[in-house]
Amino acid sequence: MARLKVNGRVRDVEVSGDTPLLWALREQLELTGAKYGCGIAACGACTVHVDGEAIRSCVLPVSSLTEANEITTIEGLSRSGDHPVQQAWAELDVPQCGYCQPGMIMAVAALLKSTPNATDADIDSSITNICRCGTFARVRKGVHLAKTKS
């Protein structure tokens, strides 16, 4: 059993402590926006925010979290899908298959929170998510567009 605070609500999850946060979110809380892509924190599809920071939830055991940690998933990023990053993504039609995009959007949202004027160099060093469809050109454009909407 673990007690987690997800998208502003405290929730109890019936899992063993070594269960990765990703699977508690997906299978106990039915928040499937964060995706399983690799399970080894290599691809970033599972990215969520923990206390405002982008975290790869597939390797983070729930035992390392308490209800004091604010967990935000893509479902809780904005009330109606209108976070500046989501707006920019819609405007530029960024996703192709879209499977990596919740993680990509969460990574970018965290970057812009800590670095509102993120440069290309900031993007290069912070956004390391894998996208096999290859949406990177639009992701980059989207980051710069989102800056103007914040």
Binding site: G33, E75, L77, G81, A90, V94, P95, G98, Q101, P102
Partner: peptide, 10 residues
């Protein structure tokens, strides 16, 4: 098919 891919809803 974009909208729900941006919110985790898809």
């Amino acid at each position: 098919d974009t909208a729900d891919k941006l919110t985790g809803k898809h």
